[in-house]
């Protein structure tokens, strides 16, 4: 548990900073009076929480004073606008990672290493079996998979926010010139990415096509919720794949019932988690989400870093079954 006299407290609503009089949320959460968030995430947050929310956009790296705390946002490399948040007050600094990854991603700013006295890190993929390959390599496999089946439609399932746009940006980097078809849930999240100037291939909502349109040889991106739904009826014999870090494990691949699994995650892998903890130079680490107990134990036993899993309200906001954790994650204060 967090120390009672620390800069951050665990409350039912989330991590609370008394000095700043503010909560740190790891996802867009409705119902707050005032939001502080990165400028890059503003569009998405307004879409999710309502256009009329009171939002103060901030730039990465800029130092702000909120009441008695100094607060800065640093790129988390997770999705467009995602941030780690650093707080400092009374000579003590805390860093809350939120969801993050350290791999290169053409759809968002890269992860920025930050130091602090206390570090709260996620550990969605906190097992050493999870080690990612570069996104460009996975994108090449996806292109091969799709273009190797010109007689069928190829449906790529992935989380609609972040992952879908990352894949699109990777495809653009591979020189893909075809128009990619999008499920409505993915389409909705495209404008903020286009406005941010991310290089993307041309896309078209599937709904814009005639119902009789030939779909063989087309690549379609859809959220996992569309798998086996009535939405899939218009495809004759599509080939399907799921893009997620969980696809590294054969049992998970087979359980999901997709033909193919591509291993690509918007979270840090094992080595990424360790590098961040070491890089933070924190004297105390708290670990949330996923395999938090495993990573915390490893940090203590092997790395000699004081660490413990952080349970309770903050961690329980998400299921740790893996099914849901791979999705969105813009940070707001």
């Amino acid at each position: 548990m967090l120390p009672t006299d620390g800069l951050l407290q665990l409350t039912p609503e989330g991590l609370y900073c008394k000095a700043a009089g503010a909560w740190i949320a790891d996802h867009a959460r409705p119902g707050c009076g005032e939001y502080w968030a990165t400028a890059a995430s503003e569009g998405i947050l307004r879409q999710r929480l309502g256009a009329g929310i009171n939002l103060i956009p901030v730039d990465y790296g800029a130092l702000h004073r909120i009441d008695d705390a100094r607060v800065s946002f640093h790129s988390a490399g997770h999705v467009l606008g995602s941030a780690q948040i650093r707080l400092e007050s009374a000579g003590e600094s805390w860093l809350v990672s939120g969801d993050y990854k350290r791999d290169s991603d053409p759809s968002c700013a890269p992860f920025e290493p930050v130091t602090a006295d206390v570090f709260i890190t996620e550990a969605t993929f906190g097992l050493p079996i999870y080690r990612w390959r570069p996104g460009a390599e996975v994108a090449r496999e996806i292109v091969q998979w799709w273009q190797g089946a010109p007689e069928r439609a190829s449906i790529l399932f992935c989380y609609a926010f972040g992952k879908a746009q990352r894949i699109l940006a990777e495809l653009a980097a591979q020189g893909v010139g075809d128009t990619i078809l999008l499920h409505g849930a993915v389409e909705t999240l495209m404008p903020p990415y286009r406005e941010a100037g991310v290089a993307l291939p041309s896309t078209l909502p599937l709904s814009a096509l005639e119902r009789s349109a030939e779909l063989a040889g087309r690549l379609v991106i859809a959220p996992p919720s569309a798998h086996r739904s009535t939405w899939m009826k218009r495809f004759k014999e599509p080939q399907t794949a799921f893009v997620s870090g969980w696809m590294a494990v054969r049992g998970a691949r087979r359980r999901r019932g997709y033909e193919r699994g591509f291993v690509l995650s918007d979270h840090a892998d094992w080595n990424g988690l360790l590098a961040s903890v070491r890089g933070s130079a924190a004297r105390q680490v708290y670990v949330t989400h996923g395999s938090s107990d495993v990573l915390a134990r490893y940090l203590c036993d092997v790395e000699g870093i004081i660490a413990e899993p952080l349970s309770g309200g903050f961690a329980a906001q998400r299921s740790d079954s893996g099914a849901m954790t791979d999705e969105d994650g813009s940070d707001a204060i």
Binding site: L127, I129, V249, R250, G251, S291, V294, D301, V302
Partner: peptide, 15 residues
């Protein structure tokens, strides 16, 4: 890798 970590991984993978 410590043994317990291998075992945690094994529990997750099942093989």
């Amino acid at each position: 890798l410590p043994e317990w970590l291998f075992d945690d991984c094994y529990a997750h993978v099942g093989d």
